[in-house]
Computed example of a mutant assay.
Amino acid sequence: MLTIEKLNDFGADTAEGLGRCYGNEALYLRLVGMIPAEANFDKLQGALQSGDLDGAFEAAHALKGVLGNLSLTPMYQVCSEMTELLRVRTEMDYTPLLNELLTKRESLAALCAD
């Protein structure tokens, strides 16, 4: 079961995230629990694999907003870096950043499943 303590250990700024949810812990945990299934992870991965930097930027930017609003700092930092590189259409191998983001998503999913 997902808890504030587990999210703190994950590196989330739960005080900030809870503040955005007006202190409603149940709402915050429910929203965080939806993140592993967020469709933009798959859109980002697919766009990067096909070389669609515009599509990758849109997916990364959407993820950055969601992750930032929930203060999921470890994921937000990686996604933010990707977003800024994609914003200027940097041609590079995004695999290491994508893998880091997906690994963190898997870690979050495990916290939600426990």
Rank of each mutant, 00 (worst) to 15 (best):
L67K: 02
N24R: 10
Y94T: 13
A56E: 05
V32L: 01
T14A: 00
L70I: 06
M1F: 06
A47I: 07
A12Y: 03
L111Q: 10
E91F: 02
L31M: 15
L7W: 04
G68N: 09
G46K: 15
M82I: 13
L97V: 09
L72R: 01
L2H: 07
L29K: 07
G46I: 08
A110G: 08
R20V: 11
D9P: 00
F10W: 07
T95Y: 01
G65P: 13
S80I: 04
L101I: 10
G46S: 14
L63H: 00
V66F: 00
M82F: 06
C79P: 01
L67Q: 01
A12N: 08
D54C: 00
L53A: 05
T90S: 06
G19H: 10
E16G: 13
Y76E: 03
G46V: 08
M92S: 09
L27Y: 11
E106I: 06
E81Q: 13
N8M: 10
D114N: 12
R20H: 14
I4N: 06
G51W: 09
D13K: 04
A113G: 10
L70K: 05
L98Q: 06
E25N: 07
V66G: 00
A60Q: 05
L102Y: 04
A109N: 13
Y94R: 01
G19N: 13
L18R: 03
D9I: 12
R89W: 06
T83V: 08
N40H: 14
L108R: 10
L31W: 08
E91Y: 05
L31N: 11
F57A: 04
T73C: 00
R105K: 15
F41R: 05
A59I: 10
T90D: 07
E16M: 12
F57Y: 15
R20G: 13
L2S: 08
D114H: 09
L44G: 02
G33E: 07
L72I: 12
G19L: 09
K6N: 13
C112N: 12
G33C: 09
L67N: 00
Y28V: 08
Y22D: 15
A39Q: 14
T14V: 15
D42G: 05
S107F: 04
L97R: 09
P74F: 02
L27M: 15
T73E: 02
L101S: 01
E5N: 13
A59W: 04
S71Y: 03
G68A: 08
E58N: 14
M92E: 13
M82N: 03
T83L: 03
S80D: 11
Y94M: 07
Q45G: 02
G46L: 07
D9R: 14
A15G: 12
L111C: 10
Y94H: 08
R105E: 04
L2T: 10
